[in-house]
Design a protein around this nucleic acid. Structure first.
Lengths: 127, 127
DNA sequence: CGGAATCCTAAGTGATACTG
DNA sequence: CAGTATCACTTAGGATTCCG
């Protein structure tokens, strides 16, 4: 942080860039970051998490959690009770991703009005 | 920058979150950030930019640039020569987005090995 | 309760051909 | 050179149904 970004340095090799792009579109999908951000407030069970995120289908929550689990962002703990209870919690890695998500979120919030203004102007002169 | 992110603060209302998610999946697509990052080194013409990004089809570059222009991230300047020359440059807003992209990129690079390790472990125990 | 399986639609993306 | 138009393909995502 506070690293001064050189305006003209290439910074990453093309291959590295494509790897970055790959992971970026991975976590930039519709639900990954909302789920991660929701889990920052503490571990949740499946349906608690689903309500917390809001608007996500059962299937997409399952898929998103599997992907996050696979990437080491989320821990899945099954309590052998009946009915079964499954608890999801962020790993350290996942928490770190959450930090990034919040930063990006802050940037978006900070620039939202400007973006909307630009869109309106663009659309207006197209008409 | 350097804002300490409170581990447990709710941070954003649900509506705000969904707006964030919306913009996030907007810029989290396959090409937006690669294009923005490429443009950080200075203005480029269409085909220069295409070569710089690498691997992008002509159609996707056009669409990505239109979307960026609409959002006020990129300026498009047509020089009335023959054959026509069109120059694309980041706006201040676009540069700011580029900064965010680089930060996220740095996070990905820093955690790539760990992620890959987790994936291998996950896939292994699935077999 | 926490999923898996299946079906379906819409959107993202690439390839190709054509144009001012 | 810098696009536009069209088509075909793949994927994301929702809805529904069924299971341990």
């Amino acid at each position: 942080m506070h690293m001064t970004v050189d305006q003209r340095s290439p910074r990453h090799s093309p291959q590295t860039c494509s790897v970055i792009a790959e992971h970026l579109s991975r976590i930039g999908d519709r639900w990954t970051l909302p789920v991660v951000v929701t889990l920052r407030d503490g571990p949740l069970r499946f349906n608690q998490l689903r309500r917390g995120v809001g608007g996500i289908s059962q299937q997409m929550l399952t898929r998103t959690l599997r992907a996050l689990e696979r990437d080491g962002m989320v821990d899945r703990t099954v309590h052998p009770t009946v009915p079964p209870q499954v608890e999801y919690a962020l790993t350290a890695l996942g928490g770190s991703l959450g930090d990034q998500a919040l930063q990006l979120g802050s940037w978006i919030v900070a620039n939202l009005a400007e973006i909307e203004r630009c869109r309106s102007a663009f659309d207006a002169e197209k008409a």
